[in-house]
Amino acid sequence: MLLVNSVKQFVTRRLPDALHRLGSPRLFFETSGRWLPWLLALSVGLLLLGAIWALLFAPADYQQGHSVRIMYIHVPAAILAQSGYLMMAVAATVFLVWRIKLADIAMQSAAALGISITFLALVTGAIWGKPTWGTWWVWDARLTSTLVLFFLYIGMIALRAAMAHRAGVGRACAVLALVGLVNLPIIKYSVDWWYTLHQPASFSLSRAPTMPLEMWLPLLVMVLAYYLFFFTAWIMRIRQLILVREKDTDWVRQWLASL
């Protein structure tokens, strides 16, 4: 009973309080401002390190040759395309439940960032496909579900653009994000299933059966670098939108005057 009560208190009181405190645009802006230079340096540094490793030191594939080096930028992009949608949906949930403005801004920024990463995954996938399959596009399971994910992002951005000057725009987008989230695993599994139905046992991008350690490590570095980059660019977008939305508040005026 005591446990139930304390859990209840946490969910109804403590968690919202903490979220509202952390969700204050001003607090976020000031805290992230201190972290941003470090994050930026770290993510760009890690990206460079991963790129040099992948281009110069990673081994060529015995089947694909050097074109396997595209994997190190394609696979992290495909992973981030999905994680980005997940993060956007988390922001959407927070916004729907607790009405925290910062979550709406985070959702909007994640959509803009996510669609560009998804586009990147599609383009690098196509470029990788040319030397590997001989065509720019193959209806491969991963590419197809990334394409559908791209459409889902387009829906988010189109809805926000269409409702731009309405009060409910944030919540409408949040509902759409959650509907998309429920569907994402169903889409993924159905596309995978559809692919095995039509083209059984053929070569698929980034599903090398045994990848040696010397390929795993740079890939891991790249995935990490992409995540850090995503957070950095996300924070930058959020900060810029906070300034625009809060431009008439005292603290933004003070900040501007202090520059």
């Binding site: 998309g180 569907n183 889409i187 159905s190 559809w194």
Partner: peptide, 19 residues
């Protein structure tokens, strides 16, 4: 706009139904 929002979500049923 409805088409853009909804068509991607129709993908799984389309796949299953045509199969």
């Amino acid at each position: 706009l409805v088409a853009i929002l909804v068509l991607p979500i129709y993908v799984p049923v389309l796949i299953l139904a045509t199969a």
